[in-house]
């Protein structure tokens, strides 16, 4: 790696850790101007920064506000770099459809899982919150996802997760997708009862679970 390239990648990494969106954008622009590989810059700069932020979160140096700010910096840099990724560099990634089930609008947990999954190399389609069961299934079919990740914080909306599984069974495509669930009231027992493939207690566990399921 050339010296300049190294410095720029390191700067991207630091911009994420330091929660500096503006710096991430400026550095990403310089990467493009210098003609360095955009995919490389994401993998070796922004993603490394987000991994470090995740470590700081695990070590209780960073908490949710800091993690969210880091991810904003990462996405700001990615927005600049993404259009410049060379097609031959685009590896085939495992696809995940993620969202909060219908009737629930609490999405911080879902967003954290999304960030961690993307940082770990998954291609995540985020449907947002208050999503009807059928939309998860239709989107997963459309993009040929490997995993459907469902989140809720409310007991009144938990059954929407079971509805997604039932929908897959009714269409005869249950074995084509892994369904993972999480959120405040969710437990392994609930996941087993609705026939989900896995349950994760937090975002880090969700990534481990996703990796295990598609290995």
């Amino acid at each position: 790696m050339s010296g300049v390239k190294e410095l720029l990648y390191k700067d991207l990494e630091e911009a994420v850790v330091e929660m500096d969106e503006e710096r991430a954008v400026e550095t990403a622009k310089r990467v493009v101007e210098e003609g360095f590989d955009a995919y490389d810059a994401i993998e070796k700069g922004l993603a490394v920064g987000m991994e470090r932020a995740g470590q700081l979160f695990d070590e209780e140096e960073y908490f949710i506000p800091e993690l969210l700010m880091c991810s904003d910096a990462m996405y700001a840099g990615m927005d600049i770099l993404r259009p410049h990724i060379r097609q031959e560099n685009v590896a085939v990634k495992q696809k995940v459809v993620i969202g909060v089930v219908q009737g629930d609008t609490h999405d911080i947990g879902k967003n954290l899982v999304k960030i961690m999954l993307e940082t770990s190399g998954f291609d995540v389609t985020d449907l947002g919150r208050d999503i009807p069961p059928a939309r998860f299934v239709e989107t997963a079919k459309k993009i040929d996802a490997g995993i459907i990740a469902l989140s809720t914080l409310m007991t009144t909306t938990m059954d929407g997760m079971g509805e997604v599984v039932r929908n897959l069974i009714e269409q005869g495509i249950r074995d084509k997708f892994k369904v993972i669930v999480g959120g405040g009231p969710i437990s392994q027992g609930f996941a087993d009862r609705i026939g989900a493939d896995g349950y994760a207690h937090n975002a880090a566990d969700a990534v481990k679970l996703a990796k295990r399921l598609v290995a």
């Binding site: 949710i64 506000p65 969210l68 700010m69 609490h106 911080i108 967003n111």
Partner: peptide
């Protein structure tokens, strides 16, 4: 909104 509030604690 929770997420923006958390970020505003810093911003």
């Amino acid at each position: 909104g929770h997420e923006d509030l958390f970020k505003d604690l810093i911003r």
